[in-house]
Design a protein around this nucleic acid. Sequence first.
DNA 1: TAGTGGTCTAGACCACGCT
DNA 2: GCGTGGTCTAGACCACTAG
Lengths: 255, 255
Amino acid sequence: MARPKHQPTPEAPLRRRLPASMSKADALYAVLEELAARLGPGALLPSERVLAEHYGIARTTVRQAVDRLLADGLLFRRHGHGTFVAEPRPGHIDLLTSFSHDMRRRGRQPGAKVLSAMTEAASKSLSARLQVAAGSPVLRLERLRTADGVPMALERTNVSLDRFPELSELDWNDRSLYDELEQRWGVRAGSAENRLAAVLPDPADAALLGIERTQPCLLVEGVSYDTEGLVLEAGRSWYRGDIYDAVVRVHKLAR
Amino acid sequence: MARPKHQPTPEAPLRRRLPASMSKADALYAVLEELAARLGPGALLPSERVLAEHYGIARTTVRQAVDRLLADGLLFRRHGHGTFVAEPRPGHIDLLTSFSHDMRRRGRQPGAKVLSAMTEAASKSLSARLQVAAGSPVLRLERLRTADGVPMALERTNVSLDRFPELSELDWNDRSLYDELEQRWGVRAGSAENRLAAVLPDPADAALLGIERTQPCLLVEGVSYDTEGLVLEAGRSWYRGDIYDAVVRVHKLAR
DNA sequence: TAGTGGTCTAGACCACGCT
DNA sequence: GCGTGGTCTAGACCACTAG
């Protein structure tokens, strides 16, 4: 007999049709994501041509969906061999998500206590980081972030009020900046640049965090951008080193 | 007059033909990368259809190249508007590259002094991280990493000797693990998972690094994988917090 | 309205690897 | 040999936006 095609197995059948609410590539992404979870690491997926025929779509479209799953680290391909389910992922990159989402994903209740909130004119260096004119109005927000009520991080961030007016009028206690930006302006984080360092806190900051002055903190300093590359926010956060770490997953993209 | 096409500007003309040594998408990637550098942030690129016609390739192929540039953060698109050069990138993700490459990229001379190198049987937890059988032989390598001769980090790493024999016979002073893996087995790092934390060093580790015991370190703990998802190496490194930080750039991919 | 990116089609040929 | 992924073609229609 000749080599058999990579057909779906009886234990993990393919669903009949794609959801019609999304694009075909998005729909297939969701289907394959679910299939990969059922099959488990190392399992062989149906071939691209089988998937294309099964759902009545072009192979190009199948590859588009599979390419995203590769970039997300859920699948891997071997030339002339097939496409396989990758090892389980450890949890997503969290440097891109907001503190609130990060904590909820870790199963904790996020909180925020405002230490100060004021409108300032952007300094030269801040205006460069925020991509706004020097002197333009900026919301400077300083908050103590908590998880299940326990101080977790000290956050000092800056947002352009030219781009996002009305932000200065909100009560920032127990409120997510990213949620507001999405709900009011429809912008979402698309990328971020961060510098991570291990530092000792200032005495005042140590007191706010409720830690000894000899307890190291993870300093996360960076800028986040929306999906069009425009700056959302620039700031620095001091995370308690005794109870926090950052998980980073890095992929070298196809070349 | 009607709206003008997005043609190449006279100041930054397109090169005539694509290099023939690579795939067309790769070649166009290189061309556009160079063009973006010449044009500078915010500049408008020739439209996809113009590029396709200019180089005599299909628009699908153009989009493939542009998609990679988007994922790499060099360009951004606006629907119905055009494709633009993004803000300058700050330096690549370095959690994926080796210490040697990272230091060279930062303009420093990397070095490595072997503290211990031994073959051990993999413990249960280590075997899981390395994806090998418990008890299989593992090279346990402990080195002091230097930059321009100055102690920079303490590195403790583990590599499977089942997968990479002969590694135990090498002199690891001033040698790059990743270079050896690429030259001898043709494997390259494709992805990595890291946990970053701020910690105080052990007294012994502080002495090796030449720092005070109160000087925080950036602990980077993780596993790196080759382009097919197989484990290359698992280990922990303590970086001096006073002279080192990690730069991380994160992209949310297309959905 | 014309030009842009977003999505998709139905093929084609190549390189690789298992049988 | 044949099935796999890798690459590419020459179109098509849609959604969005500047002029």
